[in-house]
Design a protein around this nucleic acid. Sequence first.
RNA 1: GGUCCGGUGGCAGAAUGGUGAUGCAGCGGACUGCAAAUCCGCGAAUGUGGGUUCGAUUCCCGCCCGGACCUCCA
Length: 449
Amino acid sequence: MPHLNLHDSRSRKIVPFVPLDPGNVRVYFCGPTVYDLAHIGNLRAMVTADILVRVLRHLYPRVTYVRNITDVDDKINARARENGEPIDALTARTIRDFHEDLAAIGMLPPDVEPRATHHIGEMLDMIGRLIAGGHAYEAQGHVLFAVDSFAAYGALSGRSPDDLLAGARVEIAPYKREAGDFVLWKPSEPDLPGWESPWGRGRPGWHIECSAMSHRYLGESFDIHGGGSDLLFPHHENELAQSQCCFPHGRFANHWLHNAMLLVDGEKMSKSLGNFLTVRDVLRDTPAEALRLLLLHAQYRSVLNFTRAGLAEAKQTLDRFYRALGDVPADMQGPLPEPVLAALCDDLNTPRVLAEMHALADRALAGDTGAATGLRVAGRMIGVLQQTPDDWFRAGADVDSAAIDALIADRLAARKARDFARADAIRAELAERGIVLEDSAAGTTWRRA
RNA sequence: GGUCCGGUGGCAGAAUGGUGAUGCAGCGGACUGCAAAUCCGCGAAUGUGGGUUCGAUUCCCGCCCGGACCUCCA
């Protein structure tokens, strides 16, 4: 069995993955801040985590996958006010929508999905310990982490504290001792969510929740922490600092995994550019597996440019794979083809997985049922090819299949009578409705265009 | 301005110190009443200038271009 090698953001190298406890691999990924529908950039991070966890589950008997939900945040407060709705209603609805969207894309649920607001006690406990240890201080109702109390601050993201100061483009709050100090706890206005604390009624800063929840569910040291590359600094740097200062005997995350950003039509996705796409926007006219496959078409550390043409190509690739599957049932069991596993173990090289799947499809189309089974198993491994070919080719066709069968019978009669004008008219009529007819030795079948 | 990542055929996208996968698109052919699918074949790439080396796309340096981040916030 090949060994799993993963890129580690801290060392910026691909290194062998060695679990702390092979009997229970522990993984934490930063989940969503729930104030709006998931967009396709969010989705890329979720798919990266999903593939990683699938590979880990294949290699190890038990994996504990924790993905948090940030449900206390200034963006949430602002959105709730904008919408004129209670914060609880906004977060509950957004979480429900998020779960629906991820399920549609074939994402395995995390084992634990902790919410920040359910772990305020753990956060307060950590903050108290940080103050006691001289790593945090209170100033004007805020509690701040003192970055100069952690010698390794900046090591994860590869920045020196001097670099950080040089480029600071945000006004430094006057109560900070050092410009790099960040908020652990801050006062909350009466109309905003808040919890009583030794420092007054307040709410947590952004980073402390992940430190508190990962500790609660995974311990002082765990295997992998991941998220989008935009989280590397400051979010993960700060999490690491807090956690290591609070639990000096732990290593926090042993291994850091970050996925590159997604662009839309070559540009950063933003509402002002008009290229902001939610998962739902895409799924309105695209099969979910096509969206998933598109995200797997690039290795997770490469910037991925999302385009409609790319989406169409992903759909076409799945057409080919579904043809190659033939009669192999969706739940067919078999060994995962070795080249596929080798590609996954090579830093989750999903493009190479797809190349291997094309090779399997070639053999399957040539009549090799073992290869067709291998394709099924490989597809299941990466969360695609979960349907029957009929379902894939006919889903979304807004038609009455009995009527189509009748037209196919009419056309067959016309062809027998060598009335090709009539036969072609039927083909054209169905084409108008988005139906493609395919003649073969075995008869005529139809699919959606 | 600072730190980091990247630039491979028309497009997407792997890999590699020794003749550069895979898919899409294109072209030619087989098959087909037509079409689709499938099959066979063809053309097509390492941003740029140096350096190291017998040999560089791969390693090093400069330049150009693109991207992420630069601390609670857009």
